[in-house]
């Protein structure tokens, strides 16, 4: 038996869409290994999340719903994941490489003495072994790797695994006991979570992303928001725009921020440093607006418009609205 365990992400009491990318991975890897997969729903609100997760073809949905899991802290979550992995004898434990998965899964790996591969972009089975493809060097190389251990832990890149769609059926839900917290837990205190509230789609899920760079200055929102809203887009930003406080840090797209691959990506006032390109090069269509005709962003843009964004972006907003009109 070589089954896979998906660690679902539950935040604020509800299931996060990132989970569906990990499920997409699990379906593929399970096919390769000739097994199936189960899902661990862990967090406050896990019971409701488990219902949402019942229709994806999992053998079972393990449920650990506990008030002590209201806010994610690695030291309070990890031992339940580790216990579930051990008891089920899973071959692979997977989560999506969101900030939750990145924070948690390397710990799970060392605790299980399992090999770990982060942020993988693809998986295939070769002679009964899984080969993982991972982006490295700011997306300038892909490495193909195997893990030498029988138990393996991975995180998957959300933009590379299209969210799994329900496949019908009803996976049985099973309570899984909360494991005791790790030794460090009593020395970590959750203080607060300052959320960037927005009615727009999240960067990871959006079909259209409009990003602004340093050039926007204090007029970032005034210029970018109307265009984003006319396109039903999520808003992104370059590091420089985030560093300067023109945009929240959560908007950063790039090697060390969010990785996106929407149908349409609009970059306004972004030069196109390799760290930024690493986060959006996978987009289907890229539009760049920049006053410098030699800006590197034009080397990856399908459509480039040279000029002053303070004029062009509002004009584009009008034109998109008129087109929809």
């Amino acid at each position: 038996m070589a089954d896979i365990l998906v660690v679902a992400e539950i935040s604020d009491g509800s299931l996060k869409k990132t989970t569906h990318s990990a499920i997409a991975f699990a379906r593929e890897a399970a096919k390769g290994l000739g097994g199936g997969f189960s899902i661990l729903a862990l967090g406050q609100g896990a019971r409701a999340a488990a219902q949402e997760l019942a229709g994806f073809g999992a053998k079972s949905v393990l449920v650990t719903d506990d008030a002590s899991l209201a806010n994610y802290v690695a030291e309070r979550f990890e031992n339940t994941v580790i216990e579930a992995a051990k008891q089920g004898g899973y071959a692979v434990v997977v989560a999506t490489a969101s900030s939750f998965g990145k924070d948690l899964m390397p710990r799970v790996a060392v605790a299980l003495d399992a090999g770990f591969a982060s942020d993988i972009a693809a998986v295939k089975a070769e002679g009964g072994k899984l080969v993982y493809k991972r982006p490295m060097f700011a997306g300038n190389a892909y490495g193909y790797c195997t893990l030498t251990t029988s138990v393996q832990v991975v995180t998957v890149r959300q933009s590379e695994f299209a969210p799994a769609e329900p496949s019908g059926g009803s996976s049985p839900a099973q309570d899984f006991p909360l494991a005791p917290p790790s030794p460090g837990a009593e020395r970590v205190e959750f203080v607060s979570f300052d959320q960037v509230k927005s009615s727009r789609p999240s960067l990871g899920e959006a079909k259209v992303v409009v990003s602004g760079g340093r050039a926007l200055k204090e007029r970032f929102n005034e210029i970018i928001e109307p265009l984003a809203d006319s396109l039903g887009a999520a808003i992104g930003a370059s590091r420089a725009a985030c560093d300067a406080g023109y945009a929240p840090s959560d908007y950063q797209v790039g090697q060390t921020g969010k990785i996106v691959a929407p149908r349409l990506y609009v970059a306004a006032g972004i030069s196109g440093a390799i760290q930024h390109l690493a986060g959006m090069k996978g987009s289907k269509v890229i539009v760049a607006i920049n006053k410098d005709p030699d800006a590197p962003i034009f080397q990856v843009a399908d459509y480039g418009l040279v000029g002053d964004l303070f004029q062009i972006v509002p004009e584009l907003t009008q034109a998109v609205r008129a087109n929809k009109g």
């Binding site: 300038n140 892909y142 030498t148 890229i286 480039g304 040279v306 004009e315």
Partner: peptide
């Protein structure tokens, strides 16, 4: 615990075109 077998470059993205104005875009 991890072993790399091969590496490959990402697919090249061909540079597109410059459009003349917003209506063209």
């Amino acid at each position: 615990r991890i072993q790399y077998s091969t590496f490959e470059p990402p697919p090249a993205r061909k540079a597109g075109i410059k459009v003349k104005d917003v209506p063209d875009l």
